[in-house]
Simulated assay, not measured.
Amino acid sequence: MTKFTRTIAGAGLAMAMMAQPVFAQDYPTRPVEFIVPWAPGGGSDILMRIIANNISGYLGAEMPVINIGGVGGTVGLAEAVRRPADGYTISQVHEGLLTATAVGMTDLAWDDFDLIALMTASPQYLVAATDQPFDDFEGMVAYAQENPNALTVGVTLGGVPHLHAAMIAEAFDFEWRYVGYEGTGERIRAVVGGNLDVAIGDISSSLSFAENGDLIFLASGTEERIAQTPDVPTFMEMGADLDLLITRGIVVPKGVPEDVQVTLEAALEQLAMDETFIQQINNSGADVMFRGREDYTTYLRNLSDTVERLAEVIAP
């Protein structure tokens, strides 16, 4: 468990004890279906199945996963939002819903749901090819400022990596050219192969290449440096308040009774402190980062403001 996770989880538990929330007395009485709006085998599916496989001891019910993929997660979410608001259907969102809304891919928005808890975070990095005229982030910024649009950056056009790259450019006042790739692995291979200058990557896609000397990590989107990349500075160290993560949280259809929401939130908070669960999430390349209903809402509302401001930039 990271320092941040322990702090958030501990504070949340203390507040919950003081508030003495009213839990649903007769919920759940049957399995709670978990609509994962992505195909089996991807990052969201893997991480959400870890939640589903470990939650029953805290919630008191099984949580079968139903994969409904398509159109950047929006097909499954459209099904989830139509389900009865009784607490027996949950789903998952990440920042991709905000970008999909901003660029007109879907009419759905994050606040069409009731938010229960943010559960996991996957730190994002800016990585670079090793044959660039710079060898650290500060050098890259100086080069980019002196040579507008000279650098190519690999992203998923209209997706979260595109948003993150646009946030970096805005924060450090430079311009670069966005090049679209379907997935993280494709753009990292393009960097290693010399077809891209820099890209948005993560630990699972990039660390082995960095260890082999095929690319370098320039900066991380975490609040603090992390153990796997202790020598990589954060964007915050460089003077920008950038929190570049892909987070995954649990949502329910709008209108689920308050006591049912409290029960779900409490079960997920307890799960977030389970050492076995934490290890399984870490082994899958992510961190546990619990934020309850209020904090999760604040996080998405602030991020939504950023996405709307950059919508014209990230439109594919």
Score class of each variant (00 low, 15 high):
227 A>P: 10
210 A>H: 05
289 M>V: 05
65 V>S: 02
124 Q>L: 09
60 G>N: 13
29 T>V: 15
97 L>P: 03
155 V>P: 08
3 K>A: 15
160 V>H: 07
277 F>M: 08
131 D>E: 14
219 A>H: 01
172 F>E: 03
154 G>L: 04
102 A>Y: 06
105 M>Q: 13
97 L>K: 13
21 P>R: 07
258 E>S: 12
300 L>G: 02
81 V>C: 05
225 R>A: 14
30 R>F: 09
144 A>P: 02
297 T>K: 06
224 E>F: 13
258 E>C: 10
204 S>N: 14
195 N>T: 08
118 L>S: 06
155 V>N: 03
294 E>N: 06
258 E>L: 12
61 A>P: 09
60 G>A: 15
95 E>Y: 11
96 G>E: 09
153 V>R: 03
15 M>S: 14
70 G>C: 09
2 T>Q: 03
146 E>K: 14
13 L>C: 01
63 M>T: 07
159 G>E: 09
287 D>F: 00
288 V>P: 03
43 G>E: 03
172 F>W: 06
141 V>F: 07
73 G>H: 02
143 Y>E: 04
106 T>D: 05
263 T>P: 06
148 P>A: 12
257 P>M: 00
56 S>K: 15
249 G>Q: 02
302 N>A: 12
276 T>H: 03
91 S>H: 08
142 A>W: 09
70 G>T: 09
189 R>K: 15
22 V>K: 13
244 L>I: 13
74 T>W: 03
131 D>W: 04
96 G>K: 01
170 E>V: 10
310 L>A: 01
311 A>N: 12
313 V>Q: 11
79 E>H: 13
142 A>Q: 11
151 L>G: 00
45 D>G: 06
8 I>V: 13
230 P>Q: 10
232 V>H: 07
267 A>V: 01
48 M>I: 00
298 T>G: 01
24 A>T: 06
104 G>V: 06
10 G>E: 14
111 D>K: 02
248 R>G: 02
12 G>C: 09
166 A>Y: 00
126 L>S: 03
